[in-house]
Simulated scan of single mutants.
Amino acid sequence: MSGEPLLHPVEMDRIREGIAASVLGAPEGLADSLEHDAHGYLRLVDASRVGAEEASRLLREAVQGARAAGHSWDTVGRVLGVSRQAAQQRFAGKGVGAPPSAPPGGGSNSPKRRTLSGLTAFNEMAALEEAGRDGWHMVGYGPFFHEVEASGHPWEHYRVTLPSPARHRRLESEGWIPVGAGWFPWRYYKRPVDPGIKAPT
């Protein structure tokens, strides 16, 4: 079973070139060392390993994002060029989509937490907006859920596709607090509501 490509060949080439450029360019002096240093090739193997692991992680999270957007395992499998069962076996994983168990260290003085479940890529921000108005702020997330914690004041939440380091610094300078490492392709931020500050657009 083969899926029809959703990207044009030029777009696919651009992605491949970008990955290769990152693998060669991120480690300091790696590309230049390949001209004269045999050890550089071991660094290239290590950099390629990191790139492959990251690509694998992005694919897993992209699949979960497609599921959160309402696409079936059959549709995801067609895009990947595999059967529905193969896609589900590879990417569903044990317990995927299930919210975490009780937060660690939950004593009587710990802040109250709850899980917003059944979320999709299209309704999660509305759910967080409503929770934020009621004084809840995001502390964790995964496919189809966000975990929020109670506080004594309202919060606002913001979602952005993989910000550049400069944009990330700007967001933090505006009081936005990153939550976790992100869930590809999104990165999440929160901040206590200040009537004088608007969320970035």
Rank of each mutant, 00 (worst) to 15 (best):
G70T: 13
G65D: 14
A47D: 06
L58Y: 15
E129K: 08
H153M: 09
L44E: 02
S117A: 12
E61I: 06
H39A: 11
T115W: 11
P143L: 06
E54F: 10
S48V: 15
A47P: 06
V79H: 13
R159L: 10
G135Y: 02
A126M: 08
V76T: 06
E124K: 03
G132V: 01
A38P: 13
H137Y: 12
A126Q: 10
S48D: 14
Q85S: 14
A38G: 08
Q85V: 12
G132P: 02
W155K: 04
G106I: 06
P165I: 02
A86T: 13
L128K: 05
R43F: 09
P165C: 02
L42A: 10
R113E: 12
A92S: 08
M125R: 15
E147L: 05
L59V: 06
Q89P: 01
D37L: 09
H146S: 06
V96H: 13
A55S: 11
W176L: 11
A38N: 04
R60Q: 08
P104W: 04
G118E: 10
G105E: 08
G105L: 08
H137I: 00
P163N: 00
H71Y: 11
F122I: 08
V148N: 00
H39P: 00
G81M: 07
T161E: 13
S48W: 15
L119Y: 08
H137P: 00
G135K: 04
R90M: 09
E149R: 10
A87C: 11
R57P: 03
E156W: 03
A47R: 05
W136L: 05
D46V: 02
K112R: 13
E174S: 00
A68R: 09
V139R: 04
Y41H: 09
V96R: 15
D46M: 02
T115S: 15
R90L: 06
H168K: 07
A86D: 10
T120Q: 01
V148F: 04
S56H: 12
Q64R: 12
E54T: 10
G105A: 08
F91W: 14
V96Q: 15
S83P: 05
L59D: 01
A68C: 13
F91G: 00
A69N: 10
S101A: 13
T115C: 14
E156Y: 01
A121H: 09
G118P: 03
A121F: 07
T161H: 12
G118Y: 02
S110L: 04
G51A: 15
H137C: 03
E53D: 15
Y41W: 13
A86K: 10
R113D: 08
G97Y: 02
R49P: 07
G135N: 03
G105I: 11
G93D: 09
L59H: 03
S108T: 03
L162N: 12
E53M: 15
G152S: 12
R114H: 01
S151G: 11
G81P: 10
L116K: 03
R57H: 09
E129F: 04
P163A: 03
L119D: 10
P165K: 05
E147Q: 12
K94R: 11
D37M: 09
V63M: 01
R60L: 08
G70Y: 13
L128M: 04
A131P: 08
L58H: 14
G152M: 00
T161Q: 11
S48R: 14
S151C: 09
R43K: 11
R114Y: 00
P163F: 02
M138A: 15
R113Q: 13
G135A: 01
V63L: 05
F122N: 12
G140N: 11
G105C: 10
A127D: 07
R57Q: 12
